[in-house]
Computed example of a mutant assay.
Amino acid sequence: MHRRTSKKWPRVVAAGVTATAFLVLFGSTGHATPTAGPVSSAPAPATTALDPTAYRWKNAHGTRELDGHGYFKRSCVSFAAWAIRADGHPHTESPDFLGDAGHWRGAATSSVPHVGDIAQWDPGVHGTGRRGHVAYVAAVRDDGRVTLYEYNYRSEFNDQRPDVLSVRAAAASDASRYLRF
């Protein structure tokens, strides 16, 4: 059986690509729009759309079960790695199998937080334990503070309990550094 294929399809695709390129370069008016250099990606939003209550292992029970990514369920590193995988931002490095929080390294390190970064505390800094601590940066506020999503940080938000979600605002300067993945 012989099938007839249309030769029009490649021309339709080419026409669509050409029309899209025209609109990108010249806009709907047909006039060139001035640019100040190469086109760059849009800045990160001021807050994230990540829902921290969607953490896969929030109801996990048992004594220290692994999450399949190299961490114990409901630990700060398990939650932070999950948040990086789930936040929808483009990332160039994997947050999996990096060890304790104090050992984490990202694709870039900064003292200036951005939404989607991981705030990292060295061991013993600001009350962290001997393994350090990590938290997901959910928002960067105008008052010099960041909103953090994290596990294993005892706060009023979680009734001072470990192994549960905490959402808190902290001074951006509290973290030892910010890791970008």
Rank of each mutant, 00 (worst) to 15 (best):
residue 86 A to E: 15
residue 86 A to H: 11
residue 87 D to N: 14
residue 87 D to R: 07
residue 87 D to W: 06
residue 88 G to I: 09
residue 89 H to G: 12
residue 89 H to C: 09
residue 90 P to I: 06
residue 90 P to Q: 15
residue 90 P to A: 13
residue 91 H to L: 10
residue 91 H to N: 12
residue 91 H to A: 12
residue 92 T to L: 15
residue 92 T to H: 14
residue 92 T to F: 11
residue 92 T to N: 14
residue 92 T to S: 15
residue 93 E to N: 14
residue 93 E to W: 12
residue 93 E to K: 15
residue 93 E to Y: 15
residue 94 S to Y: 02
residue 94 S to A: 12
residue 94 S to W: 00
residue 95 P to L: 04
residue 95 P to S: 05
residue 96 D to F: 04
residue 96 D to R: 12
residue 96 D to K: 09
residue 97 F to K: 07
residue 97 F to N: 13
residue 97 F to Y: 15
residue 97 F to M: 04
residue 98 L to E: 11
residue 98 L to V: 08
residue 99 G to P: 04
residue 99 G to C: 03
residue 99 G to M: 03
residue 99 G to K: 01
residue 99 G to T: 03
residue 100 D to P: 10
residue 100 D to K: 13
residue 100 D to F: 14
residue 100 D to S: 13
residue 100 D to I: 14
residue 100 D to T: 15
residue 100 D to W: 14
residue 101 A to M: 06
residue 101 A to Q: 09
residue 101 A to Y: 10
residue 101 A to R: 09
residue 101 A to I: 04
residue 101 A to G: 10
residue 102 G to S: 05
residue 102 G to M: 02
residue 103 H to Q: 15
residue 103 H to N: 15
residue 103 H to E: 13
residue 103 H to S: 14
residue 104 W to E: 01
residue 104 W to L: 01
residue 104 W to Q: 02
residue 104 W to D: 00
residue 104 W to C: 01
residue 104 W to P: 02
residue 105 R to I: 11
residue 105 R to Y: 11
residue 106 G to I: 10
residue 108 A to V: 09
residue 108 A to R: 14
residue 109 T to M: 07
residue 109 T to N: 05
residue 110 S to P: 09
residue 110 S to R: 14
residue 110 S to I: 06
residue 110 S to V: 03
residue 111 S to P: 07
residue 111 S to H: 13
residue 111 S to W: 03
residue 113 P to H: 02
residue 113 P to E: 05
residue 114 H to A: 11
residue 115 V to Y: 02
residue 115 V to C: 08
residue 115 V to L: 05
residue 115 V to K: 03
residue 115 V to H: 03
residue 115 V to P: 06
residue 116 G to S: 02
residue 116 G to C: 01
residue 116 G to Q: 01
residue 117 D to C: 06
residue 118 I to S: 05
residue 118 I to W: 04
residue 118 I to V: 11
residue 119 A to P: 00
residue 119 A to W: 00
residue 120 Q to M: 06
residue 120 Q to A: 07
residue 121 W to S: 02
residue 121 W to F: 05
residue 122 D to C: 01
residue 122 D to V: 02
residue 122 D to S: 10
residue 122 D to Q: 12
residue 122 D to G: 01
residue 122 D to L: 07
residue 123 P to V: 02
residue 124 G to S: 07
residue 124 G to E: 08
residue 124 G to D: 08
residue 125 V to G: 00
residue 125 V to F: 08
residue 125 V to P: 00
residue 125 V to K: 05
residue 125 V to S: 02
residue 126 H to L: 13
residue 127 G to V: 10
residue 129 G to S: 09
residue 130 R to M: 12
residue 130 R to V: 11
residue 130 R to Q: 14
residue 130 R to W: 12
residue 130 R to C: 09
residue 131 R to F: 12
residue 132 G to S: 06
residue 132 G to V: 07
residue 132 G to A: 07
residue 133 H to K: 00
residue 133 H to Y: 00
residue 133 H to A: 00
residue 134 V to M: 01
residue 135 A to Q: 03
residue 135 A to F: 01
residue 135 A to P: 04
residue 136 Y to W: 04
residue 136 Y to K: 02
residue 137 V to C: 05
residue 137 V to M: 04
residue 137 V to L: 05
residue 138 A to K: 07
residue 139 A to T: 01
residue 139 A to H: 01
residue 140 V to Q: 04
residue 140 V to L: 06
residue 140 V to N: 04
residue 140 V to I: 06
residue 141 R to G: 06
residue 141 R to A: 11
residue 142 D to M: 08
residue 142 D to N: 13
residue 142 D to L: 09
residue 142 D to T: 14
